[in-house]
Simulated assay, not measured.
Amino acid sequence: MELSDFAGDLYFVLEYTGVLLAATVGGTVAKRMNFDIVGFAFIALISSLSGGFIRDAILNDGPAAALTNPGYLITATIGGAIAYTVTLKGRLWENFRFYADIVTIGVWAVAGTLKGLVADLNWVPCILLAVITATGGTAMRDIVLRQVPALFTSQKMTVFPAIISSAIMLGFNHFDLVWQGMLAAAVAAPIFAVAVYFGGDRFSFFATKEIERPLEEKLGYALGVKTDIRHPVESGEHVTQALEEATDDQLLGAIRLYLQNEVRERSKAKA
């Protein structure tokens, strides 16, 4: 498969968009963790380029695109610089990180699928490359930060949208509608992710398992504080404030409830 000039230009626009957003999100995460300039740049670059590096290594088709095209490193640097100079916090930051992450899923799923098509692979490896490209950066970022990768706990928000986006791209390509498929697939993934986030718990297949809940959510429930997984930083601040203001009796009651829920959740997971 060969891309037309317009489709090729659109491909780079989509992939650069993903690099810019991922570098900005990664850089802001490093900034909030008080990393120095080296750690800051490292996290920004890993977040934005790891998925492409892994994809290109699997294809074994010469040097990775990020090494042969300076535009990738330049775009990642710009994204990191935005995160370094612009202060995003509170609900603004949480909303940006949430929507930036799901937008990158769509654009990188398209990029991974097209890489597979250009290499004349069939639909199975094309979908695999889409998932790797879409999730590789965030997975590597979480591993470096010693966190459980969101890939393992939020598949409905990452893997499934990437698969759907890749399938749409493959379907359009079958009818030689390449650039139309690129746009449709890039838009479909974030729409699906948002739909699942807001309404997925109505279906058992997409329901969030209790064992996946973060610590601040579990403590917030025990303390009677409302939390939102889409706003982890803000939720953590509310829980921290509640812990500081709680009396000894309230803390003991919250700890008892937390431990009871923890034992109950772990027992269900092993059943």
Rank of each mutant, 00 (worst) to 15 (best):
I102F: 05
I102H: 11
I102V: 15
I102C: 10
V103Q: 09
V103R: 08
V103I: 15
T104M: 06
T104G: 04
T104F: 11
T104E: 06
I105K: 05
I105G: 00
I105D: 01
G106A: 12
G106P: 01
G106C: 11
G106I: 10
G106M: 05
G106Y: 07
G106R: 13
V107W: 00
V107G: 03
V107D: 05
W108F: 14
W108M: 06
W108A: 02
W108L: 08
W108Y: 08
W108E: 05
W108C: 01
A109S: 03
V110K: 12
A111W: 03
A111Q: 08
T113N: 03
L114W: 11
L114E: 08
K115L: 12
K115I: 04
K115P: 11
K115Y: 13
K115H: 04
G116L: 09
G116K: 09
G116V: 10
G116I: 04
L117M: 14
L117P: 05
L117W: 14
V118M: 14
A119V: 07
A119R: 09
A119E: 08
A119D: 07
A119G: 08
D120H: 14
L121V: 08
L121P: 08
L121H: 02
N122Y: 12
N122M: 08
N122K: 07
W123N: 06
W123M: 11
W123I: 12
V124F: 15
V124W: 11
V124R: 05
V124K: 06
V124M: 13
P125N: 15
P125W: 13
P125L: 10
C126K: 07
C126L: 10
I127P: 00
I127F: 08
I127N: 01
I127G: 00
I127S: 13
L128K: 03
L128P: 01
L128M: 15
L129T: 02
L129I: 09
L129H: 04
L129E: 03
L129W: 06
A130C: 09
V131H: 05
V131M: 03
I132P: 02
I132S: 00
T133S: 15
T133M: 15
A134G: 01
A134W: 00
A134L: 09
T135C: 11
T135A: 06
T135V: 15
G136Q: 09
G136H: 09
G136R: 03
G136Y: 02
G137C: 06
G137H: 00
T138P: 00
A139P: 02
A139E: 01
M140F: 04
M140P: 01
M140S: 09
R141L: 05
R141C: 10
R141Q: 08
R141V: 11
I143F: 07
I143S: 08
I143Y: 07
I143Q: 02
V144A: 03
V144Q: 08
V144W: 03
V144D: 02
L145H: 06
L145T: 15
R146G: 09
R146E: 14
R146W: 10
Q147K: 15
Q147E: 10
Q147F: 10
P149N: 10
P149D: 12
P149E: 07
A150F: 05
